[in-house]
Design a binder for these strands. Structure first.
Lengths: 174, 174
DNA sequence: GGTTGACATGTAAAATTCGACACGTCACTC
DNA sequence: GAGTGACGTGTCGAATTTTACATGTCAACC
């Protein structure tokens, strides 16, 4: 259901778009919270067209199909957003690795943590650059929350890694 | 591969355990970063036994099988931890919902955010209770990082929701 | 005229994950 | 002795996701 809602949501926020557009949008926006390849997106769009959640216009230059969300599609995503469904728990390989850190020797764990810090710093640089950029239409409203959450999440991860590293250093010195 | 590494990691951290134990351990430890039902765990343990990553002792009261990680299993998980594999990106339905918040009317979004805050507070209460609890064997080392990250993540989410809510209130007053 | 790269859509097989069904044991309580 | 609930393992079908294969167009550059 999540993929469907993500697609309807993107269509609702960005206006009519093609499968190709949506694939790109996925990558450049919610990638840190959800992902889908075009091989999953195209069939889902066709299914939704069959079910009347979106309409499709087949014209465009290269067999391009433009999808538009329908009234019913909007209702569907709105209901999903408002229901307190207990949302399936997150899956995050990075956090899993963090959890398994104690399986390593202190020096090894320290190496992994330092790499984590570097990765976070790199990601932060990218996100902060986007934040600084003079407001494109997308920065207001749509994408606003995503960016903010992404920044907070990355900073949180960085802080954690830094403090964990410091703790390991302290305890291995003693 | 992640499930396999999670299982090997847990076996490495907790010592020999049964599939049942591991299912429970999964729920009580890395649940917020990775999940698996017993229907996924049991077959994976059998496969790993075939491949020599774990050994199995079939005794125990109720047909209980006890799995122990082997040298090869340890090597496998260690290599995985140390390789900079670009870790598949996270999937988090809650963040997806957050991202789609702008599809809602301000009052509706506000409602969702307030509920998010309540959920985070509830989760924080649980985690902080665990943190306060006099150190059981698991709180040191194993589980230490997981708990810390869980706390930080939940606080981050709470702060984000609170500030987003405040921002919506401000802009709807004007 | 040929090549390259972004644009554009699709399918199929494999792997992963979930939800339901299925079976049996042991300890404790009423 | 019957019932309940935690313990314990397993399989199967469906849904979801990934990876690879497959095909073709348009614009720009050389």
């Amino acid at each position: 259901m999540s993929l469907r809602m993500a697609l309807l949501g993107l269509l609702s926020l960005s206006g009519p778009a093609s499968g190709y557009d949506l694939t790109k949008l996925f990558e450049s926006s919610i990638n840190h919270a959800w992902q889908a390849r075009h091989s999953q997106i195209y069939p889902e769009l066709n299914k939704m067209a069959d079910e009347g959640l979106v309409t499709v216009e087949e014209d465009g230059p290269r067999g391009r199909k433009t999808y538009t969300i329908t009234e019913e599609g909007s209702r569907t995503v709105r209901e999903w957003m408002l229901t307190t469904s207990p949302a399936r728990p997150a899956r995050d390989e990075k956090t899993l690795r963090a959890f398994l850190l104690p399986t390593l020797k202190p020096e090894e764990a320290l190496g992994v943590l330092r790499e984590t810090i570097r990765d976070c710093d790199a990601k932060l640089a990218v996100l902060e650059e986007i934040e600084r950029r003079p407001s494109r239409p997308r920065t207001t409203g749509f994408g606003r929350y995503a960016l903010d959450l992404g920044l907070r999440h990355t900073r949180m991860m960085r802080d954690w890694a830094a403090e964990a590293a410091e703790e390991i250093e302290r305890s291995s010195r003693s």
